[in-house]
């Protein structure tokens, strides 16, 4: 009985006692989108989209994004149509009751690399490449963590034993990650002639993913500044009115 109770308690404590997975704290980076006045760097977002499309998209989906959302990183309607048209989208059933493939439209969600989680796992040695739509918001450390992870591959110290098919990454919990180093220097060719170092690609794709997680960020901060300004003035007036009302009370 005692054992049962303590087992139940352990369950109750729901794994908070789980292994203190050691990893290095990601160093803080400077991001154009941090701070009260922060906005996304459009060029970096578009380069980051290119990195996502040419590198990450082989395994990682961004299920919450539709092609039309790309208007938000500075693409024009025709660009978005062209980008969407490159994708093959399963649609249907048609009049014959069959599913068919067609070119993507702006209203379609981003094409996903695998039809379902099982397919994704079986193609990746059992590891599941997570959906990246919200990854910047869904990780402690946010953009700093993603950047650190992408640039944090290296040779394992002598005392760390790396399992087969895993890679050493100082910033990943447990320091072993199933994803092989994804970025290579000049792995993509930027149209704006920016040099595609690993750091540059990591920075760009992190900017893209930060936008994917918080597409409302710029609108939110802009509105926030106006609202704060209004409220500060209003509160000042309310204070003056309160003083006036209370002037006769001792």
């Amino acid at each position: 009985m005692r054992r049962l109770i303590s087992a139940a308690l352990l369950l109750l404590a729901f794994g908070t006692a789980a292994e203190a997975a050691e990893s290095t704290k990601p160093p803080a980076q400077h991001w154009s989108f941090s701070g009260m006045f922060g906005t996304f760097d459009r060029a970096a977002q578009q380069r980051g989209f290119q990195v996502y499309k040419e590198v990450c998209a082989a395994c990682h989906a961004v299920n919450l994004l539709s092609y039309r959302h790309l208007r938000g990183i500075g693409y024009q309607e025709d660009d978005v149509k062209a980008i969407a048209a490159q994708a093959k989208v399963m649609d249907g059933p048609n009049d014959a009751g069959e599913m068919f493939e067609r070119a993507g439209r702006p209203s379609d969600k981003f094409a996903r690399p695998f039809p379902n989680e099982n397919a994704a796992r079986s193609a990746n040695n059992g590891a599941y490449p997570v959906d990246l739509s919200l990854v910047v918001k869904a990780r402690v450390g946010g953009a700093n963590y993603i950047y650190a992870l992408l640039t944090g591959y290296g040779t394992a110290p002598a005392d760390v034993k790396i399992a087969d098919g895993m890679s050493y990454n100082a910033y990943f919990p447990g320091r072993q990650i199933a994803m092989p180093p994804p970025l290579n220097a000049d792995g993509v060719t930027y149209q704006d002639a920016t040099k595609a170092t690993i750091e540059q690609q990591a920075r760009d794709v992190t900017t893209f993913l930060a936008w994917a997680a918080e597409p409302e960020l710029e609108a939110r901060k802009q509105m926030g500044l106006k609202v704060l300004l209004f409220l500060i003035v209003l509160t000042g007036i309310l204070y003056a009115a309160k003083r006036k009302v209370w002037a006769g009370i001792h």
């Binding site: 609202v227 009302v245 209370w246």
Partner: peptide, 25 residues
């Protein structure tokens, strides 16, 4: 009213500033 409505309105203003700070930033 008007004493505590005025005082509460001022307090509400302070609260809204803090609240907006969190919601927007």
């Amino acid at each position: 009213h008007p004493y505590y409505t005025a005082k509460d309105a001022f307090g509400l203003g302070i609260f809204l500033i803090l609240f907006a700070g969190v919601v927007f930033f």
